[in-house]
């Protein structure tokens, strides 16, 4: 399978990373080198093998459904690039 410029552009957009038009061919080439390396996995017989979900068999712990944390608005907003009146501020989303 080979990735072309258009696919590279589509992946970049899906990943929400702006890539300049002139950088796309080189990016596609890098993807192809990495995917070429990954293609080796096709040699492995994986019939009847379950995909790993947890490297150590463990049951996730459960706890009572109660509030254990919160009331930290100032701390949560402290590192925001733009916070106003207790909210995160972003460019206009809805016209």
């Amino acid at each position: 399978m080979s990735i072309d410029k258009d696919t590279a552009a589509r992946v970049a957009h899906l990943a929400r990373i702006r890539v300049d038009e002139e950088r796309l061919p080189a990016l596609a080439e890098e993807f192809n080198a990495i995917l070429g390396f990954i293609e080796q996995l096709n040699e492995v017989d994986v019939d009847g093998v379950e995909p790993m979900t947890s490297v150590t068999p463990m049951r996730l712990k459960r706890r009572e459904d109660v509030v254990t944390d919160g009331d930290r608005q100032a701390e949560v907003l402290k590192n925001a690039p733009d916070a106003r009146e207790g909210f995160f501020a972003v460019p206009k989303v809805v016209e």
Binding site: L41, N42, V44, V46, V49, E50, P51, M52, T53, V55
Partner: peptide, 10 residues
């Protein structure tokens, strides 16, 4: 496929 191969490595 990678997760299956991972299971085999383990």
């Amino acid at each position: 496929r990678a997760r299956k191969v991972r299971a085999l490595i383990k």
